[in-house]
Design a protein around this nucleic acid. Structure first.
Lengths: 297, 297
DNA sequence: CATAGTTGTTCAAAATTACTGAACGATTGG
DNA sequence: CCAATCGTTCAGTAATTTTGAACAACTATG
């Protein structure tokens, strides 16, 4: 009456079910029929139940046996996958790579690369979180992600390695009918402060939240992601800076208007960030590929 | 280089991780330290990787070893649960009991019973589908469920056993401002046919769908469940028969009005239905408990 | 800086477990 | 009814796992 089923028994059950008889299963496992009998008997005494009904002298699975076969196959697969995953891990392939993508980057830009990776390495899971402002940095420091893409102005930190990734241009936008469109440009802080600012909430959980491009004293409408911010801008709910790639279409189609503002940096360098030390091959692959295209964006 | 990890090795790894050393693990498994060494070595050669780093002469898990421990525990749990599930199955406890609840019954009426069952038998999963008209019957015949509760007017069938469950009273309802409220009662078919009928779609997939209480030629608005039907009735989108338990509150609060209709049976017997033959203990438990209260509803 | 108490390894022997092969009874299909 | 298949049993053998003793490396403690 052992408390757990033995993997060997599950293999034997699987073979019997797959080949239709003890004899055929024995042949498929390069063993002799009595060895199959032996294992099945052992399983039955261990579990204290009947797994096969031997009435018609062609052994047929009992309901409990059926359960063992069906569920047992999941366990067999899992234990094979675990062996494979351990070998990959030992070969410096992490089982899962977690990526933080800064909200200023368009997720669609990353999809071709993800697609290429998952085709080449189907066993490695990839998980992408979109993070805003300090969120990507914090996720990296907290080891919630392995790689942060497109973070602007990251603080210096001995434990974090960085590589220039590109530049992101911020455009001050509002809807066509918005009162600010009538104001003289370049807009000064006072002109801007009179109108509600649309901001994307920083996803940082514990570091001091940063407010990007934000002028104090201005009324705010905070939304949870860049897409919502742009929709809200188009509806005239406020004004704010947006990454150019996100608003290029809306500007071209006249759904949003770009306005000049005074002396505020609109172009910022962005970086690829990862923790120093052990670098898995999947992480290295992404650093290589993203670094190769750097500056293009 | 076997393709799968052995359960014995996972037990040993788990014990080492849990107790902190080979020696302590050996003690906990009532074995001698060299046996632990043996199993670990065997695992390492089978996988072709290092599982422990023996540099500091206090063996420490490699990343691959940590993966094996963490993921391996899931496999150990699964194989123990499989053994237990097989024993329960052999003891005529089905691993999962699937119940079809007729839309005319209020799901809330079943919750106390479900709660009682899951406390008494936490290992047995219960799944409830709500089915409309022929849907419950069909789900039973198709073996998608094991028990159908509250089905009205089930066809006779040699493979299906039944037990009277109760009665369900249907009330013809409409919103307070609806034109039918001004018509003389009892309403005849012509009066009813002039107004849109709200019907709940039959969930039957292959049997001829039944239309409950429906007069042909009448315009219809079909919705997917009883709750939606009642909301739609309250909004004045149509008229129709509803089970009294579902509309009792709405009638009492005046959100719906009950109207008399001509010569149509408004009270129907409902039944508990299950397939004849092997009857698992969970099924028997529900039949006993539901049968005991029969007639009360 | 000993020293006692760890920890994990190795190896031959012992114990246990799994597999084989032959003999046998039961069932199926032609 | 005969030949072919199927699964079981059982004694013997092969393979694997466990043991116990000897050993080497490290740690903490006085």
């Amino acid at each position: 009456m052992s408390e757990s089923v033995r993997l060997e028994a599950l293999e034997v059950l699987d073979a019997i079910d797959r080949h239709g008889s003890f004899a055929a299963a024995a042949a498929s496992l390069y063993r002799v029929p009595s060895a199959i009998s032996y294992t099945v008997n052992q399983l039955e005494t261990e579990l204290g139940i009947r797994v096969f009904d031997r009435a018609g002298h062609r052994a047929v699975l009992t309901p409990a046996g059926r359960l063992l076969v069906d569920e047992g196959r999941h366990i067999l697969v899992a234990s094979r996958e675990l062996a494979a995953a351990a070998r990959r891990q030992a070969d410096h392939w992490e089982p899962e790579l977690k990526i933080a993508l800064d909200a200023a980057q368009k997720p669609a830009d990353l999809w071709p690369l993800i697609a290429e990776f998952t085709v080449a390495y189907p066993a490695i899971n990839v998980r992408i979180n979109e993070e805003v402002l300090a969120g990507g940095w914090e996720a990296l420091v907290d080891e919630r992600v392995d790689l942060a893409i497109g973070v602007a102005d990251p603080p210096a930190n001995a434990g974090i390695r960085r590589m220039p990734f590109g530049h992101i241009e911020f455009v001050f936008c509002c809807a066509p009918g918005h009162p600010l469109t009538a104001a003289p440009q370049p807009l000064d802080d006072d002109a801007i402060r009179a109108h509600r600012a649309l901001v994307v909430a920083d996803t940082a959980r514990q570091f001091a939240p940063r407010s990007g491009n934000l002028i104090d004293g201005q009324p705010r409408l905070t939304v949870s992601n860049m897409h919502t911010k742009i929709v809200a801008l188009e509806r005239g709910l406020g004004v704010g800076y947006c990454p150019r790639p996100w608003v290029a279409d809306a500007l071209a189609e006249g759904r949003l208007i770009a306005l000049n503002t005074e002396a505020r940096p609109t172009r910022r360098a962005t970086y690829l960030l990862w923790r120093r030390g052990e670098r898995g091959r999947a992480l290295q692959w992404f650093i290589d590929r993203l670094g190769r295209d750097a500056g293009a964006s």
